[in-house]
Each structure stands twice: as structure tokens, then as C-alpha cells.
Amino acid sequence: MSSTEQGTSSAAPAEPTTAPESAAAPEVPESFYYVHGKDKVVHKVSAGALQHSALIHGMISNLGYTEEQAKANPFPFENIDGDILQMVVDWCNQHKGKPTPPEDTNLPKQKEKLFDLVLAVNYLEIKELLTYCCKQVAMMVKGKSPEEIREIWMIPTDAEDEAAEKEAKKRAGKEAAGETAAAAGDAK
């Protein structure tokens, strides 16, 4: 279960609101941590839900944060879009302490979102979700011809690849020549 609130770009994040975790109150109070993505929206997530992420689990396992410290030090994932991080947090909450089903049909169908989710999940090391995502990516090209796949996934042809490589080399050569000339000018 998570709560989100639009934060600011300052170091101290905005106070997040909290939604009830579950109907049955746990005997031992559960610890919570805070994460935010590129949009600075802070998500409150339980340690149990975060166990899905090997990266975050590794980070928090020895921290021993108090609630206050956790609030003051949200995990910043500036490389993950806010809506993508929201999806990840939701998935972790939905599957907290539960065996993961063989299929997950709630993943985004939209190509860009799915790829962003794959990359975020890979970064956060959420193994089961990554498996679902990769399956979904594979489904995108089910029954498609090479031309259709090239179009869907914007795969450049070998000729386009070669042209881009030549262009990059040319640019790098020009830059190197410019730097040499500048260095020679400085020496004079």
C-alpha cells in the first residue's frame, strides 16, 4: 500500500499521506520506507512490499532507520519516471507476501511505457515482475513479420546502422581535430 504526494525539488520531501495498510493490523508494527522518481512524488512503501526489489532490499536491510529518518531520506530514483515508479510500487504492494501468479495481465500495453517499466524493474532488480514484462514485450511481436517487428520496435536496418556509425565517427573525428587545434592555440 502506498501513498503519494506531489513533492518539490528541494532535498526535504513533502509529507506523504498514508492510506490504511490492511484491515487486519499486524502484531509487530511494520516499517515503511519512502521512494521518489523523476517527478519527486514520494511513495510510502512497506518493507514487506520492497522485498520484491533486490536493490532496495539490499539498501534497507542494514539501515535500521527510524520512521523519521526514513521520511527524511527517501530513496531518489531520478532515472525512473513518476508514473512508472507508481506502477512498480503498486505491483510490489499487490504482491506483498503472496506467491506470484504465472501470468500478470495488468501490465501496460503501450510500447514506451512497457519498455520504461522493463528498464526500471531491471534496475530495481524485481525478478518476477521482470519476467512478466519480458513476456509482455515478447507478446508485442507475436505473429509479426521481420518488417513489422522493425516498424514496431523501430529497429534500424543494417544500412541505417552503418550510416549512423559513419556519421558518429565523422563527428568524433571533427571534435578531436577541434580539440587538437584548440590545444595548439593555447600552447602558442
Binding site: K38, F77, E78, N79, E112, F115, D116, L119, Y123, W153
Partner: peptide, 11 residues
């Protein structure tokens, strides 16, 4: 983690 590049969304 914040130093990682922003991901693109292309295969």
C-alpha cells in the same frame, strides 16, 4: 542511482 542516465524507451 541518480547519476544513471535517463532511459530511452526504444528496443
Amino acid at each position: 542511482s541518480t547519476a544513471e542516465p535517463i532511459y530511452d524507451t526504444n528496443w
